[in-house]
């Protein structure tokens, strides 16, 4: 089979294309992982609250719960916070005299263990069972991969083509 003389160039183009696709796949994999975590954490939370409400036979007082979505700012107790608020409460400005951390609600749910430890690879067999039960069937293999900490290898082909 004769190859066109520019085959080396074509190989290089393909190599670039291959790298690009690998990058996109990696990015989409972590996106998928995050969405799976969100789904599991949210469903777990809803289930937990449903059980608590059923067993106590009443919803918790409305002033003791915070509905999603929300954001948390976490700082030292000693931090002085200077806050200006517009009259209509549409605008806020906070000044801190010390460092702070911002967490979204999903991060909070993860820290509460609602993602079954999947986010940190600390998922027990029992956790994994729960997690798998909370996603559609097509996603179950991914949940297992995440529990084993190996999802990032799922798609990356084993042997890079050498030059």
């Amino acid at each position: 089979i004769g190859l066109p003389t520019n085959s080396a160039q074509e190989c290089n183009n393909l190599e670039v294309e291959r790298q690009r696709r690998l990058e996109r796949i990696k990015q989409k994999q972590s996106q998928l992982q995050e969405l799976i975590l969100q789904q599991i954490a949210f469903k777990n939370l809803v289930q937990r609250n449903r059980q608590i409400e059923q067993s106590s036979n009443r919803p918790p007082p409305s002033n003791s719960v915070i509905h999603l979505p929300f954001i948390i700012v976490n700082t030292s107790k000693k931090t002085v916070i200077d806050c200006s608020i517009s009259n209509d409460k549409f605008e806020y400005l906070f000044n801190f005299d010390n460092t702070f951390e911002i967490h979204d609600d999903i991060e909070v749910l993860k820290r509460m263990g609602m993602a079954c430890g999947l986010e940190s690879g600390t998922c027990s067999a029992e956790d994994l069972k729960t997690a798998r039960s909370l996603v559609p069937k097509a996603l179950e293999p991914y949940v297992t991969e995440m529990a084993q900490g190996s999802i990032s290898n799922v798609y990356v082909s084993s042997n890079p083509v050498s030059n």
């Binding site: 918790p60 509905h67 030292s76 931090t79 909070v108 820290r111």
Partner: peptide, 19 residues
């Protein structure tokens, strides 16, 4: 049912040190 309680929030950060 998508809510957390104040207790939940307290459990993610040491309340004696963090605000």
């Amino acid at each position: 049912l998508g809510y957390v309680t104040c207790q939940d929030l307290r459990s993610i950060a040491d309340p004696s040190e963090r605000m």
